[in-house]
Design a binder for these strands. Structure first.
Lengths: 344, 344
DNA sequence: GTGAAAGCGCTAACAA
DNA sequence: TTGTTAGCGCTTTCAC
């Protein structure tokens, strides 16, 4: 009874390999492989029988082996470079929304997502290590941090990579991001329209995104003859309140409008202003950036510049897929949108 | 000139495989493999020479092949089940902090992180598909959602899995999480100590974590002879404000203390209270849960129950590693901590 | 201390 | 329509 002996020999171990399944079905491993892949070449009845068998035995294809053979993984890497002193340049809420949309989009296209936080200072080779690992088919980098040059360099040799960040004139790597400079202009315009005559930019101007926001605000301020000063502030939640309080203590008398580089900063600033008894927007106008869910929840609700995160995620995935198909895609710059609430 | 011809033949293609490198070094692939692995058996000089060669040629080991051969992936899966109608039971900020700590801990132990959001209603088999994919060595599930039974079932056959969530008497799967019931007790105690005489629990009581928080508050309220009513509220940011406003409109006259199931709810509630002109904490006491960074930023700052997220992440990874080593670990229940600020 | 050889589990050309 | 066969790139016995 060969059948019986087969059953017996498999009884202990699960049906683990395609070869086990082939023995059980009385066909060759090749046929099983084709059947499971839904290959049209295989007889419909055989196919159904094999698929049924696979289901009842809880058989799962070994992806590692499949990947190795097909030279693709079905996995997209998502790297988050944490720039010097690891201060986060992207708020949790912003990032989670982006990550959620990315996960959904990628899943929809049959890709899994491998997440890696990298500390460039500690690991010079983070990009090559990721792209060359053979573990991912392509790479999405979230935020340029202080790694612009390294990303530029990698982009020369590695096509399937798309970056969330700011677009520079003539850059090589494919980037998706909001037009930060335009966003800065919108913010300054709104502050001035609301009656501000002297502005503060709240935020570090070193990260490229923030630099562009500051520059945009500067464009408008200069044209309107309104002064604007930059007050560098860390994004780490524990240092933020003190630094903001310091800035306000030093300059509150001289300024009547604040452009915060992110909503997170704006919210902290709002609290600091209330602590000082400065009425918003009567004595001080305030505009944020991002339009996080939080922005509608403050008292008074925050006027801000909206980034379309869902569109950003769609763009990142779409461009990456096209690059995976060999296309050399252009960057995508998304328009920001002014959302007027009650702080300016 | 054999050397020359070698160089030439490799000039076009990169040094891609261990075999390329072996040819270049004039040794066998086996030796290269050992050298790169830092195997002590190989001659120190040969080892250094090969490692140097690998570096200068930017050689990266193909992980897929290595994984297949060694029958392990060096990847841990992180699954986020999105329960019915996908409402999120874990706030972005909480989740991001957890994910960040997880990523750090796992990286530290040489593991990568594969993230998957799953919608159980659409994919009954999400757990088996992940554990059986051969892509991950182990699995961390974030939140039990409404999948308690399925997780229980999977845990019977799959050892290397740890879950973030609530601990039930006699459950089989290994869970890490805060003692929610105790947290609920602390919250109610604080509300009552601050003068509350009639309580509202703001939040859905169906998720197990929340049910336990409500039960804990109920324990204390009953002993103190204080009534408490549950007011189910969605966590989706767009529905939250209206639902809370509705609850307040219906019951604001009867209650003078609110225990919000999460800080996110508490913050929205704070705003709703201010909109209604109810002074906090004079007319209404409020306690949240989580101690998100946000909690210190509100006006007035929020009294809340702290969950130690970093300890949670450490626990999850530590238990998972021990399970990967074959140990059948117990669950880990973390103590919550009352953080008194200004709302109660 | 190193080389040769046998696979890990799967897929895809090539035969039949 | 199916079976046979030759690897994907690596690791690890087993010889020497």
């Amino acid at each position: 009874m060969p059948d019986d002996s087969l059953e017996t020999s498999l009884a202990d171990g699960q049906v683990r390999t395609i070869t086990d399944l082939a023995r059980l079905a009385g066909v060759s491993p090749g046929t099983v492989s084709r059947a499971l892949a839904g290959n049209a070449l295989v007889n419909a009845r055989t196919r159904d029988r094999i698929q049924q068998l696979a289901r009842t035995h809880g058989f799962q294809l070994n992806q590692m082996a499949s990947n190795l053979r097909r030279q693709k993984t079905g996995v997209v890497g998502v790297a988050i470079p944490l720039g010097h002193d690891r201060r986060q340049q992207i708020s949790d809420s912003f990032f989670m929304t982006l990550l959620g949309h990315l996960a959904d989009e990628l899943t929809e296209h049959g890709y899994d997502l491998m997440l890696r936080r990298v500390i460039p200072d500690r690991d010079e080779d983070w990009l090559a290590r990721f792209t060359g690992s053979g573990m991912v088919d392509g790479l999405i980098v979230i935020g340029q941090s202080d790694q612009f040059d390294r990303i530029e360099e990698a982009a020369a040799a590695y096509l399937p990579m798309v970056v969330w960040g700011n677009h520079q004139q003539g850059q090589r790597h494919c980037v998706v991001g909001t037009d930060n400079r335009l966003g800065g202009r919108l913010a300054a315009q709104q502050l001035i329209a609301a009656g501000a005559t002297s502005l503060m930019f709240l935020g570090d101007t070193e990260p490229m995104e923030f630099a562009a926001r500051f520059a945009g605000a500067g464009d408008v301020a200069a044209r309107a003859g309104v002064p604007i000063m930059a007050c560098p502030t860390h994004l780490a939640i524990d240092r933020m309140p003190d630094e903001i309080a310091g800035h306000l203590a030093r300059h509150a008398g001289q300024i009547d409008g604040i452009f915060a580089a992110t909503d997170t900063l704006a919210v902290a600033c709002l609290k600091a202003l209330q602590d000082r008894g400065l009425a918003v927007p009567q004595r001080m106008r305030l505009v944020g950036f991002d339009d996080l869910p939080l922005a509608g929840q403050t008292v008074p609700p925050l006027t801000t510049i909206r980034q379309d995160i869902a569109a950003g995620a769609r763009g990142l995935v779409d461009l990456l897929l096209r690059r995976l198909a060999g296309e050399k895609t252009e960057s995508l710059v998304l328009p920001p949108e002014l959302v007027v609430r009650a702080t300016a």
